[in-house]
């Protein structure tokens, strides 16, 4: 398997570390426990297109987001992770 690092180009699998689902959003610090449990433990785990975190550990050390099909391993995109962050609110929006 070869992964496209946005900085270094196509590189071998064994240069990378895996970080799992990249669509998760770290909850607000005071978010309800259920949100935190979901974030830490529960996953969509799709068979098909999957956006996931990888780190180019043996290369530029950047965390990246790769879009990869988990059934065929076909890769359809990659981005620097810090451009793909869905910013979490500093505090959860508590409705009164």
């Amino acid at each position: 398997m070869r992964l496209p690092c946005p900085w270094c180009g196509d590189r071998d699998l064994n240069e990378f570390g895996y970080g799992g689902d990249a669509t998760l959003q770290r909850p607000a610090d005071d978010a309800p426990m259920k949100e935190w449990v979901d974030y830490v433990f529960f996953r969509d785990n799709p068979r098909g297109s999957h956006r996931e975190h990888w780190q180019h550990i043996q290369g530029c050390r950047a965390w990246i987001v790769v879009e990869r099909d988990t059934l065929t391993h076909e890769i359809t995109g990659s981005w620097p992770a810090n451009e793909m962050v869905v910013a979490a609110p500093a505090k959860s929006e508590v409705t009164p």
Binding site: G17, G19, H53, Q55, I57, W63, P80, A81, V85
Partner: peptide, 14 residues
């Protein structure tokens, strides 16, 4: 180190 880099790049890029 990876843990720190992960949080800097994916959670707190600011």
């Amino acid at each position: 180190l990876s843990h720190m880099e992960y949080h800097l790049q994916t959670c707190w890029p600011d």
